[in-house]
Computed example of a mutant assay.
Amino acid sequence: MRQLYKGNFLRQKTVKNPCWEKQLIASFLLMADVHTTEVRSYNMSRIRAKDTKPELMVRRFLFSQGFRYRLHDKKLKGKPDIVLSKYKTVIFIHGCFWHGHEGCRYFVVPKTRSEWWVDKINTNKSKDKVAFKELTDKGWKVLTIWECELKQKALKDTFGRLLQNLIDNEEIANS
Rank of each mutant, 00 (worst) to 15 (best):
R48G: 14
L56R: 10
K50E: 08
K74V: 09
G78K: 02
K53Q: 10
L56G: 08
M57H: 12
G95P: 02
T37Q: 15
V58P: 06
W117H: 08
W116C: 09
L62R: 14
Q65A: 07
I93E: 06
C104D: 03
K53M: 11
C104N: 05
R46F: 04
R40Y: 04
H35D: 15
L56F: 05
G95R: 09
T36P: 03
S64H: 00
I91C: 07
K86M: 03
I47Q: 01
Y87I: 05
V58H: 06
W98V: 10
V39T: 10
Y106W: 07
E38T: 09
Y69R: 11
L56T: 07
K77Y: 02
K77A: 12
W98E: 02
S85H: 14
S64L: 00
T123H: 12
G66M: 01
R59N: 01
V109L: 15
I121T: 13
G66S: 00
V83K: 00
V39S: 09
K125P: 13
D119P: 08
F92D: 04
P80V: 09
E55A: 04
K111A: 09
C104Y: 08
E38V: 14
S64Y: 00
E115T: 08
C104E: 07
H99I: 13
H101D: 04
S126M: 13
D81C: 01
K111R: 05
K50G: 08
Y106I: 10
H94E: 05
K125N: 07
R60F: 06
K53F: 04
L56N: 08
V108E: 11
N43K: 15
K75N: 13
W98S: 07
R40I: 12
E102Y: 14
V118L: 07
V90H: 00
S41W: 02
F97S: 05
L84H: 06
L71H: 03
I91V: 13
R60D: 12
H94G: 01
A49E: 14
K111M: 07
K111Y: 05
K79S: 04
D33K: 11
Y69A: 12
S45Y: 11
D51R: 11
E102A: 15
K111P: 00
I121V: 15
T123K: 14
G103F: 00
G66K: 06
T36C: 10
M44I: 13
K88F: 09
W116T: 10
G95D: 00
A32W: 12
P80W: 00
F97N: 12
S85K: 15
K120T: 03
K125C: 06
E102I: 13
V90A: 00
D51Y: 01
D51V: 04
P54V: 07
T52C: 10
F92E: 02
Y42G: 04
S64R: 04
R60Y: 07
L76E: 06
P80E: 03
N124R: 08
Y106V: 09
L84A: 05
D119C: 15
P110Q: 03
D81S: 01
F92V: 06
T52F: 00
P54L: 05
N43H: 15
D119H: 14
K86N: 10
R68L: 02
P110W: 07
Y42M: 12
R59A: 05
P110F: 09
K53L: 12
D81R: 02
K74W: 12
F107R: 07
I91R: 12
F92Q: 02
K77F: 01
N43E: 06
F67H: 10
E102R: 15
Y42N: 11
